[in-house]
Every structure is written in structure tokens, then in C-alpha cells.
Design a protein around this nucleic acid. Structure first.
Length: 281
DNA sequence: ACCACTACCTGAAGGC
DNA sequence: TGCCTTCAGGTAGTGG
């Protein structure tokens, strides 16, 4: 689920019940996700007002009134679900076995973090030195921000002898791309996933930068529309999954008008890449 | 500095 | 129905 567009969609879904709201109660129902929660995790969250809910790459960042920021990563299977007030209080639904963190805010709302695989992670860190947190310190530029450009990407690719597919998954090169949107962006740019990163021309890198921005923006817009039903901020792929051009479409016809080719799947560093051999060189 | 590979964990899906 | 294998959107740590 969670690459940059999904995390941004989750952020937008959570903002109305978190930003400017106070966390009236916090509960961690186990001691860890991928790593242990920080000391006194729930206590440090309880009673805090959320000043701002942001995002950096695939991390959600909730800046708290007391000077700390909650960092959250959804891993592979993490999701936040929001329930509003029903009659007086919340539904008396029993937490499921994969519901690991529960936050209640004075929106009022109950926010449940669910993560079957527990590849997700949460931490608390002083807001003043947030960029120094080990999860953020080496992270590359935001692809939709001013820090990402043809020149910046070209510099990052200069010494990389790996296929462009693998290099784009490296979060220190550019933040927020994952296996789906790398495939989609490479298709959009007409670049073969096996293309050696450092051999790419500036013109092709420029096309890639544009493709990354286009694909991510389209996905965020589509994700936004799935939030109309905001009772469940499901971290699902939203409607954009119906717009994938290559991801998950092995052996289906290429989506480009006039192309008679079919989508191929190859494995690169143990992960699937989807592409059209006619359109991508 | 870079690269290939492994591990972490559970559930879904497909083959038999 | 059930058992087995394979695969899944991520990242950190290892050793070359």
C-alpha cells in the first residue's frame, strides 16, 4: 500500500481529526512494531495537542505541542482507520488482533493503527532536531518539491551502475517512490527498468523527472477522491489502482494507444518490475 | 561509496 | 477442505 501518494492520502484523511486536536488518550497494545516503541510512548502522546500533521517521503509526522514529533511509517501493511463519534461515545468494537496503536482525539475520533506484518514503525523525537532523526537524515528530496530537478537527479545517478529501477527505490536518491510508482513512472518516461542509471542522457533524466511528478500527482488526486468516505481512512490504494498502466498487468495489452505489445514482468533484486518492451528502451 | 542479498512478519492466492 | 508454496506496496543490516 504505502508509497508517497498513499501516505499523503492518509495524511489528508487524518488531518481533520488530528490537526489542532488534542490526543485525549493513547494506547500501544504491544511493545513494538518493527522496532520497540520509545520509552513511555503512550504517556508521551496522551494529552498532547497536534500542531501540524506533515509528511516526509513515506513518513507521517505529527508535530506535538510539547516539542516532540510523532514519526510513523506504514511499512507494507500498515493502515490508519478513523472512527468518529457515534452516540455519546465510540462504537464498542473490540480491537482486532492486528490493531496495535489506538489514539483518541477530541475531534472526537478514534484512530486505530493496524498492521498485520508489523513492518511499520513509530517513534517520538524532538521537533527541533527532526531532520537529524536517523529515518530522515539521509533521505533524498521530495519529488514534488523544489529540491527535485533534472540536475539533482542526474547528479545522484552519476555514480550508480545499477538498473534505474533499483536506484529509484533508494530513498536517499528521491523520497517516497516504491515498487509501484517506479514501474509507472518508467513506463510514462519510456525508460526500460534495466537501463543502467549512469548511462542515461540528461534528456531522458528530464523526462523521468517529469514522469515521476505526473504519476505521483495523478495518484494523489485519485487517492483524495477515495477519501469521500472518510469514516474509514483505509490506507488502500484507492481508485488509482484502476489507473495503473503496467503495475500488476503482466501479459495484458500495453495501455498506450497504437502499441500492440504486452506488459512484461521481470525480477530485479528480488522484486517485480512491469514494463512494455515496445515503449520502454 | 556502492551493490547484492537477507531478514523481519503475516495473510492471500494458487496448485495439487 | 486442506496443505504447501509463493508472493506482497519497505527498510536496515550484512558482507563483498
Amino acid at each position: 500500500m504505502p508509497e508517497l501518494p498513499e501516505v499523503e492520502t492518509v495524511r489528508r484523511g487524518l488531518a481533520p481529526v488530528m490537526e489542532g486536536r488534542r490526543i485525549t488518550n493513547a494506547e500501544a497494545r504491544r511493545p513494538d512494531l518493527r522496532w520497540p516503541f520509545p520509552e513511555r510512548f503512550a504517556e508521551r502522546l496522551s494529552g498532547q495537542r497536534v500542531l501540524h500533521l506533515g509528511r516526509r517521503g513515506k513518513y507521517l509526522l505529527a508535530e506535538l505541542e510539547g516539542g516532540e514529533t510523532l514519526l510513523a511509517h506504514l511499512g507494507m501493511s500498515g493502515r490508519f482507520q478513523v472512527e468518529g463519534e457515534v452516540v455519546g461515545r465510540f462504537h464498542h468494537t473490540q480491537p482486532g488482533k492486528h490493531d496495535h496503536v489506538i489514539l483518541e482525539t477530541d475531534a472526537p475520533a478514534r484512530i486505530t493503527y493496524t498492521d498485520p506484518r508489523r513492518f511499520g514503525a513509530m517513534d517520538l523525537w524532538p521537533s527541533a532536531t527532526l531532520e537529524g532523526h536517523r529515518w530522515l537524515t539521509a533521505m533524498g528530496p521530495e519529488p514534488l518539491g523544489n529540491g527535485f530537478s533534472t540536475a539533482v537527479l542526474a547528479e545522484a545517478l552519476r555514480r550508480r551502475s545499477s538498473p534505474i529501477k533499483q536506484v529509484l527505490l533508494d530513498q536517499t536518491v528521491v523520497a517516497g517512490l516504491g515498487n509501484i510508482y517506479v514501474s509507472e513512472a518508467l513506463f510514462h518516461a519510456g525508460i526500460h527498468p534495466s537501463c543502467v542509471a549512469q548511462k542515461m542522457s540528461v534528456a531522458r533524466i528530464n523526462r523521468l523527472v517529469e514522469a515521476i511528478r505526473t504519476v505521483l500527482c495523478a495518484a494523489i488526486e485519485a487517492g483524495g477522491s477515495s477519501l469521500r468516505d472518510h469514516r474509514q481512512t483505509n490506507g488502500d490504494l484507492g481508485y488509482f489502482q484502476h489507473s495503473f498502466q503496467v503495475y500488476g498487468r503482466e501479459s495484458q495489452a500495453c495501455a498506450r494507444a497504437g502499441c500492440a505489445g504486452a506488459v512484461h514482468r521481470i525480477t530485479q533484486s528480488g522484486r517485480s518490475s512491469f514494463f512494455c518492451p515496445h515503449c520502454q528502451r
